[in-house]
Design a protein around this nucleic acid. Structure first.
Lengths: 343, 343
DNA sequence: CTGTTAGCGCGTTCAT
DNA sequence: ATGAACGCGCTAACAG
């Protein structure tokens, strides 16, 4: 049982109210310098830490934020949570992390649990662009920041990465190596990032004066290695003359590896493959994957900073959404096409 | 602002204390059946949920448990947390997850934060067998269950997986395919699982009447793919005549893949490789990895159950530690040795 | 079975 | 600058 404020006050020889004022940043100036010192000493000596329940009860805040994610085993989430945790815990907040399993009813249940816990704010990484994603579902619970996935309401505070930039970097890299027949294995259109990357892919080719051939795009209806294998397999068998592939993400790229191998082709000698995300382990596969590096930790940190800003100044207008830059990590899954660089 | 208990009571036409009794499982029997009904109806109508701060203040419990892990990006943790979360949240508890980054000072700071939050219990997945790991550091904060890693005190409640069983399954599989020269790329001796697996490796060979050749064991001083590449490389170059390798874990196995490839050998045709953990993605590498499957989700769930048991009956003696069984997932990284099965 | 009373540990008035 | 008094929302002890 830790010490109470009254014990600290007694040891310091002051009234509990004074001790409270001395210990709290905001009210410290209403107390003489040396009583502050006495109280702090006493607190330290007794190893005092305020009872958060008692504090919550009067301040009506919990210093907790809920973080809603789909599936923790998806490799983008651990670094994202790390980023969130770094800034929240530095500010004295605790993150309550919730796994929805990408199940909407489960998500609703967990939101209710977070509400019951009286979280001060919410960081949501599960919003999809299509369905029932009315942002009020979250923001009626507490101030909310969206991250990684775009919410239905474009005005809601959001932290995304720059998909357009990533795709342009990838295409740029392939084109510089001499590729002209660059395929795209796209994600399902109800995922906002899938449509964004597809659009950027077309743009990037167009800007470089390369024919945008619809035959070079396959759309998966789910995101998995198997879907990638199947999708690229079709493309390869169609005789479209592909020399390079931009996969929707790293997992799909792994599936593409398999499709290439199954046909007795080699990566990168016969086909170059570029992933997206630079997930944990992308350097360990064979060949090590060239991929767009997304700094998910920075995204989590930025989302947390944004949310804490909203909490510290509830009156202010919601902050502008941001789109963080990405970079290209070149490894060994890309090389010039067989026939060499045309001149 | 959610409804308060007094409002529910007013709507139901009873005293707040009665409403409280009606709403709480444990005291419900002290109230007539139809007042329970009235109160529940009122609560539902007002969308009542009790203020956890107020409740904590009087019950002196927070219905939270702290979960301490090393690094969330290590793939065993996400499923483990999932297991913890499943059972804790079903019991009305919230898990507070803490990343120590495998940094001891950071761990101490986070333990302090959890203590400040008044967690009811602790699940610790970071204890190493060697150094400063006095279990009292944790158990002085709250009742504690250790999971995945063995604490210094063997009597502390712990959930481990059966390393011996896993190694025996792996060796059994290799021997059944005709391997006799089975190497082991072992982890550093200060990791408790490393010594356990090494011991089991020797045992398993011995029990099958196979020579235990010290030249077939390399010890890494850190656990990484690079260390695995380097370690198996030495073994391969030593001319010890290895036909199969048991790696400390999957990551190390990936490193072993590289060592094999670098020498122009092939897996599994020239060298069979077995991993340990069956981490996310082990089915996606080439060749898909044969590995000992550890059910980390089950371990997390079991640890949580154990902890909740301790919390619900503080008087009882601490529960016995358990060691959960593992299984072998056979994929394509193992095959009979080149010269075929000797008879 | 139900109402009354008290108090959990704090921050915040309002006096002094 | 400090002390006194109050109340946040809830459960527990005690009456009736």
């Amino acid at each position: 049982m830790p010490a109470r404020l009254s014990e600290v006050a007694a040891l310091a020889g002051v009234h509990p109210a004074t001790a409270s004022r001395a210990l709290n940043e905001a009210t410290r100036n209403k107390v003489s310098a040396d009583t502050v010192l006495k109280v702090r000493r006493a607190a330290e000596q007794l190893n005092y830490s305020p009872n958060p329940a008692a504090r919550s009860l009067v301040t009506n805040r919990t210093s907790t934020v809920g973080v809603i994610i789909g599936d923790l085993t998806v490799p983008l989430f651990p670094p994202l949570l790390r980023g969130v945790d770094d800034v929240t815990s530095a500010a004295g907040y605790t993150a309550l992390i919730v796994n929805t399993d990408n199940d909407w009813s489960r998500e609703l249940a967990r939101i209710a649990a977070l509400q019951a816990r009286r979280v001060d704010g919410l960081i949501v990484a599960t919003a999809t662009s299509g369905d029932q994603a009315d942002p009020r579902i979250w923001s009626s619970v507490a101030p909310t920041v969206f991250v990684v996935r775009a919410p239905a309401d474009p005005l809601a505070p959001t932290v995304l990465s720059d998909d357009s930039m990533g795709v342009h970097l990838a295409v740029e890299h392939l084109v510089a190596q001499g590729h002209r027949r660059i395929a795209h294995v796209a994600g399902p259109p109800e995922i906002s990032t899938a449509t964004a990357r597809l659009r950027a892919y077309r743009e990037a080719l167009f800007e470089r004066g390369i024919e945008v051939d619809p035959a070079l795009v396959t759309t998966m209806d789910s995101i998995s290695a198997d879907a990638g294998t199947e999708a690229l397999g079709r493309l390869l068998d169609s005789g479209a003359g592909v020399t390079a592939v931009l996969a929707f993400n790293d997992i799909v790229a792994y599936g593409c590896y398999r499709a290439v191998r199954q046909r007795g082709l080699r990566c990168p000698e016969d086909i170059s493959i570029v992933g997206y995300s630079d997930m944990n382990g992308a350097d360990l596969v064979a060949p090590p994957l060239t991929t767009v590096h997304v700094d998910h930790q920075a995204m989590g940190a930025e989302a947390a900073r944004m949310l804490l800003g909203m909490l510290s100044d509830p009156g202010a207008r919601p902050p502008h959404s941001v789109r963080l830059p990405v970079s290209l990590t070149v490894r060994e899954s890309t090389a010039p096409p067989r026939q060499g660089v045309p001149r």
